[in-house]
Design a protein around this nucleic acid. Structure first.
Lengths: 257, 257
DNA sequence: GACATTAAAATGCCAGACAATTAAAAAGTG
DNA sequence: CACTTTTTAATTGTCTGGCATTTTAATGTC
């Protein structure tokens, strides 16, 4: 293993890339121990702090884990779906908040993906999934429920719908989309939405799932999307009406809380 | 800002988390300069190398960028879709190769997601998208094309299909799924597949897109999925027949190259 | 005013050291 | 011999201090 001193990239970035490539290529397999930091420093001909910076980069991506002690060291980590969720949610959240993605676009993406699960979920849903969804519907019907709790319950409900598809890869891809949307949806719609209507649509979804009616589930999701996007338009329109009269200020509908 | 010396996590992990949370929460906005490493070391009451490790963790996630020189430092990075692609592809690739995800499951997830784009793509596709797809079909028809080049062209084709939906969030979510599948699909199907058939299905897709026939596009995708999964089953069956006669070994159909 | 020089600030990198942790080896003990 | 305790070695985590490099700003000179 060698690195290029003339490269524009930092040593630590180059070393991280070399190790990452080795992992992706399968040259380093799961649970395999990497050389110690001192050995790596020798191999790459850099100092130990530089190696450490490289290892921290990989740790940030959950590609390795480190253990202290005599038999410790850095080990290739088995990347689990749960580990990948958190990163996907953070990334999606920042993509949404930093790129002026409109509520409409985010909403469309989310429901398009979710509808992709519907046929599979209708086929494979188990009683457990239905029970989870029903429990969340019950929760959503409680009068004293806070807005935060309602939204959290909403996420759990939709996660169950996605998980019912029985495809972990699909669940992973959707986790980011669904969870990242939550703060955005909170902010836009919690002032205006009708919980009764949402609960009704959720009930509709569970019924169609129980009947293994894929088209019905898709239709219910489409209805929920339509309602949510209408809400978004209404809120945006209200804001424009409220903000515009005073001045012609260019108000970006960008969230930052 | 403070960190907990009793926590099980490393200082650098805690510091990275604190800064990451501040970015996600919007307390640090895009292009804002973080305090210098020395100042951060003072604030968190740790040494500079520890701060540096934390910053490298954030850099690995493209959350910050660093600049040298007098006005240099660490700046909050605007996370772009392109930056997020690479991470998503790496993560998806490793998820597939490390979690014994079967070809069938991966394939199902990929085409489910892709079908989710079909209605949008059929509505919004531009002549540019159609031209890109046609160019790739032409390329895929060249007799001397290598397997690698054929697969790369296949990815480009499907990327165009996804991009035609005109939703960057959707494109981002699908980039990982489509590109991560490439190595897996290569390995499984390149021995057995019929390029003519794939080209035919691709042509079918372009035609239906041009006609803005959403259902037709979905059907073409479903046909391609069906063909691909059949191929996968055939290859797996052949392998089992080849491997089993010698011994009753439990051969995991797991890729690692 | 234009250009060269210098200074300052910041990251990138290094050497060496010590602390903390962990497991294995060694020693002791009944 | 079996068991417990102690020691030792390996490894990561962290700190101190320093030097090199890069970039901008200020300063001086003609």
């Amino acid at each position: 293993m060698k690195i290029d001193p003339d490269s524009s990239a930092d040593f630590s970035a180059q070393i991280a890339k070399a190790i990452r490539d080795a992992i992706v290529a399968g040259d380093l397999i799961v649970d395999q121990r990497l050389p110690s930091e001192a050995e790596l420093a020798d191999q790459f001909d850099v100092s130990r702090p530089t190696v450490r910076e490289a290892l921290k980069r990989l740790a940030a991506q959950s590609l390795i884990r480190t253990q202290r002690g005599a038999t410790g060291g850095a080990f290739v980590n088995r990347l689990r779906f749960e580990d990948a969720y958190a990163q996907a949610v953070t990334t999606s959240t920042l993509l949404l908040s930093m790129n002026a993605v409109s509520f409409d676009v985010a909403c469309e993406a989310r429901y398009a993906l979710e509808r992709a699960c519907a046929p599979l979920s209708a086929t494979r849903r188990t009683p457990d999934h239905l029970a989870t969804m029903r429990a969340e519907i019950t929760r959503q019907s409680e009068p004293g429920l806070s807005d935060e709790a309602f939204c959290a319950s909403d996420v759990t409900f939709h996660r169950a719908l996605v998980d019912a598809a029985g495809n972990p890869m699909l669940s992973y891809q959707l986790a980011g989309a669904v969870e990242a949307m939550q703060p955005l949806m909170n902010m836009i719609t919690f002032t205006a939405r009708s919980r009764e209507r949402i609960v009704m649509l959720h009930q509709n979804m569970v019924s169609t799932l129980e009947a293994r009616d894929a088209l019905g589930t898709e239709a219910a999701l489409a209805a929920l999307e339509s309602y949510t996007r209408d809400l978004g338009h209404t809120v945006v329109a209200e804001r424009q009406q409220r903000d515009r009269p005073t001045k012609g200020a260019k108000t970006k509908e960008q969230s930052s809380a």
